[in-house]
Design a protein around this nucleic acid. Structure first.
Lengths: 120, 120
DNA sequence: AAAACACATAAGTCAACACTTAACTATTGC
DNA sequence: GCAATAGTTAAGTGTTGACTTATGTGTTTT
């Protein structure tokens, strides 16, 4: 369990790191609209093919993309599950923050109420 | 409009980059439970104070945290809006992916139907 | 006023990233 | 079989990132 927690933290590192690059995000955007070959992913990007391969590797290591090769063509697809860990982390933080925000609001409303009742 | 789009991409870069570090995520986790002073953020982390300040700077530049100084104490708080851009991007990708997945499923069901009807 | 506190800035180091070009390997089409 | 295609691997380079220590600046406390 301890190990899985550490792994999870590392997984989040890899995920957010992977998402931090605009080229990689562009690749993910393309893949979210359907599978694509490596050269298809490379086409809109202004970089060499080896560079694209390296980015692809980052995405695969992060579990955001899977690929398999048939013949001389490697077909890549997005891995929906990879995105959800990142999404969940963000949602958790927002939820906690908003809960705090709501409590603060309630507290302030309480103060206002006391004020109206002449309590100092 | 072009400029704002570029800025937004840069903003996502900064956001995901900021989220990629476990120390910074720890700081955000702490801040999602309420405001904190710099040394309070630093306390659980095994690094020097200047390092924490640098991380804090990254978080502020990414718009994930705000802070103001009163006296000799700088109080930091999470900026909920900063997280939402990242959340939105992830949600968009997932939505597109899931829509495609659903269409595929529908298509496969259609094939199965045809099969049952003896169509080849 | 002196000491302690809470942060801030500077400068330097070491590793990780994002590329590049060059050379190589397996398919596929002719 | 030979050439073109699609991807792969290796090695090198410049930049950025994550720290560090040393030193400096206001602000309280005593």
């Amino acid at each position: 369990m301890v190990k899985s927690m550490l792994n999870q933290q590392t997984a989040l590192d890899l995920t957010f790191q992977a998402l931090a690059d605009p080229g990689r995000r562009a690749m993910l955007e393309r893949l979210s609209r359907g599978p694509a070959a490596v050269s298809e992913l490379a086409q809109p990007l202004t970089m060499s093919l080896p560079a694209v391969l390296q980015h692809l590797n980052v995405l695969e290591t992060a579990g955001l993309v899977t690929s398999q090769k048939t013949g001389r063509i490697r077909t890549c697809q997005i891995a929906g599950s990879g995105l959800s860990a990142a999404q969940a982390w963000l949602a958790d933080r927002r939820a906690e923050w908003e809960a705090r925000f709501d409590r603060l609001e309630t507290y302030l409303n309480g103060l206002q109420e006391e004020d109206r009742n002449g309590c100092v």
